[in-house]
Design a protein around this nucleic acid. Structure first.
Lengths: 110, 110
DNA sequence: TTCGTATTTCGCAAAATTACGAAATATAAA
DNA sequence: TTTATATTTCGTAATTTTGCGAAATACGAA
């Protein structure tokens, strides 16, 4: 009782925080729908300044949900599939107590 | 092209924000596991001051995820099942995107 | 009425978030 | 070397979040 939060609670909160801004939701939707994307291409779709977009990309990167590969002068952003799957499992088990999907995911993992 | 965010994006961000703190994740877990709960009972499990807990409960209430029924001097909190289902559907559809797209992403990676 | 209980609201402070434009960075192309 | 391009980092500001303890609130019981 009254101990620290569990690591699952912290992980779910961390991923939730990463998705707690509509710009970041849109970024993930773009990356999920078209494999990879450059920051500039997203900037034409998302209604914020490029420097602000860059900050949101950094936050998603820090949360582990995306990776950025440098192809100067551009940077190619992609979903980090391993952590995306981790987040997916966390949210599915949080919202849907039917565990079968999670067991499948675990059995496919590495 | 650079329009406002869609209502689905805003809704998902709003629910994500509600779950973006481990205390609020724990609150939802408690309420989901035992239908309803009094603030004081949660206070014995969650490692924050009662006044801070009250703030988190208010945030979850504002996000629509929980309701509070007054039974003075206590308040009985319950999951708002309608909005919980709404959030559940949003998250499930967000995370259930076709994974093959992600495989494409890997195959096109330099 | 007074006391006890449960919870919130208030007042405050520290820290984080969000946002923008300007400047810096790093490379390829001319 | 100079120029163009894509993106980030810097500097700054406004707002929000998180946290606590003290005080307020509302009721039932003594």
């Amino acid at each position: 009782m009254k101990g620290k939060y569990s690591s699952l609670q912290n992980d779910l909160a961390r991923f939730s925080k990463a998705l707690s801004h509509p710009a970041r939701v849109q970024i993930m939707e773009i990356l999920l729908s078209q494999s990879c994307c450059y920051s500039g291409d997203m900037a034409t779709e998302i209604p914020i300044a490029r420097s602000t977009l860059s900050q949101h990309l950094t936050e998603l990167k820090n949360a582990g949900l995306i990776d950025g590969e440098i192809e100067l002068p551009r940077i190619r952003y992609c979903v980090n599939t391993e952590n995306w799957e981790k987040a997916r499992i966390l949210f599915l088990s949080f919202f849907d107590k039917d565990i079968s999907i999670i067991d499948d995911a675990n059995s496919c993992r590495k």
